[in-house]
């Protein structure tokens, strides 16, 4: 009954090929087939943003996209942000600003902001809040996430 396809996705710069059920979401494919468990599923109905990954430059909810739809595309997950031990400036800023508590929502915020800050080098606080308005965090109350994003923007602009 299950319909399977072979797909190839460029994940964090590396071509990865797998044979998947067509009904699997991209989030499930990343987690179960590629063992990239940094992408978290918080609601699986497109509201919490925890599963956000960057597909061809756009932040998308990996719970709402099928794995097979990502065939031939470039995907960046949270695992692709840091370079070895070197954290990405956004990750570094989250650390310094205490922008995470339980860390479950964090990958989704990082990927959302990664894509946002690449395109908005000098955002206002309001713009940052808008940018993350599709991500839910139950722990932090958002304030330190916003502060982290403002700091990261400065660092990224300078570099």
């Amino acid at each position: 009954m299950a319909d399977n396809r072979e797909i190839t996705i460029k994940v964090n710069g590396k071509d990865m090929t797998t044979y998947v059920e067509t009904r699997l979401s991209l989030g499930d494919v990343l987690r179960e087939h590629f063992h990239l468990t940094g992408t978290h599923l918080g609601c699986e109905h497109g509201v919490c943003g925890a599963c956000t990954v960057v597909v061809d430059g756009e932040p998308i909810r990996s719970c709402l996209m099928l794995g097979v739809q990502a065939h031939g595309k470039e995907v960046t997950t949270v695992e692709g942000l840091s370079k070895g031990e070197d954290l990405h400036p956004i990750q570094e800023a989250f650390w310094k600003n205490h922008g995470l508590q339980c860390g479950y929502c964090t990958p989704g915020f990082l990927t959302t902001l990664f894509s946002f800050l690449e395109n908005n080098s000098d955002p206002t606080e309001r713009e940052i809040r808008e940018a993350i308005s599709g991500n839910i965090c139950r722990c932090t109350g958002y304030q330190n996430i916003v502060n982290a994003a403002l700091d990261a923007a400065k660092v990224m602009k300078g570099s």
Binding site: T37, G38, V78, E79, L87, Q91, F94, W95, L100, G103
Partner: peptide, 9 residues
Amino acid sequence: DRTLLKGSG
């Protein structure tokens, strides 16, 4: 934090 930030929690 570092582990969580890298997605390796």
